[in-house]
Design a protein around this nucleic acid. Structure first.
Lengths: 137, 137
DNA sequence: ATCATTGCAAAGCATTTGCATTAAA
DNA sequence: TTTAATGCAAATGCTTTGCAATGAT
């Protein structure tokens, strides 16, 4: 079995540790590295990684629904996504985690998983917006 | 302008108040009501409703991503989804909402929105699972 | 020689769009 | 009669799959 694609993709994911990478981004980065792979392989490998628990898939951005992938760091975390520049921060909050358990219990559910995505404007984008406004006045 | 499609779809959404309906489900229910509409119209109307703020679109179930729609009850809420039967409960939790603001602030974000989806097994499904296990023994 | 992995092209699915047709104001 | 809404079919975007070719053991 050929292993180049798997290794190459894994390396890209490792480089982007903590970041989220789309299949397309991976495809493009592989091109730059002179490792042109068809999308099918990219997706197939990501799929394998996903079932192996190496990688997690997220669907942010309800509108332009394209999955992004990240190395599974085992530790659960939630996401704060900047709606302007797309940057993503991770966080874990004990209070929220605990509260979720309580809520689930109250609703009669056995909680197995959750995803919390917060959307907003990150501080640099806020700054840019502010600058732009002061100019346009 | 013809209004039948819009009214019919609105009615279906109202019937399913608090539930989440997929475009396909709407399509099928319209068929049963002898109001056959093409999917394009279903989606177009839902799209209009969405931009009009009448309807909200969600993408649950990271894997088989199909949107579901619900009447916009204006009040923000989060979701608890049963991974076995697909039933969805709504909830709002002040503590979580507040905590999110704090977290966003700490991360330097201006929070504009969020989506919290909790996944688990609802009590009836837990019961069914339990029954099944006791049989297989 | 066998079996998993690859590349390509084609299929798949949910959703959207172009365009000619039709209904409403 | 002008504008908006509809139906159809075709296009889109992301993702998956069938299959033959290839690489590894």
């Amino acid at each position: 079995m050929e292993t180049t694609p798997r290794l190459a993709i894994l390396k890209i994911l490792e480089l982007g540790k903590g970041k989220h990478v789309s299949a397309e981004a991976i495809y493009r980065r592989l091109l730059k590295k002179n490792i042109p792979l068809p999308m099918s392989t990219v997706y197939r490998v990501l799929g394998q990684f996903e079932s192996a628990g190496i990688v997690q898939r997220h669907i942010f951005d309800a509108e332009r629904s394209a999955s992004v992938f990240e190395l599974n760091n085992k530790v659960h975390h939630d996401h704060m996504i900047c709606i302007t520049c797309g940057s993503v921060s991770h966080f874990v909050d004990k209070k929220i985690e605990e509260r979720q358990l309580t809520i689930a219990k109250n609703l009669g559910f056995e909680l197995t998983d959750h995803s919390l995505n917060m959307y907003g404007v990150c501080c640099s984008c806020v700054a840019i917006d502010a600058a732009r406004e002061s100019v346009s006045e």
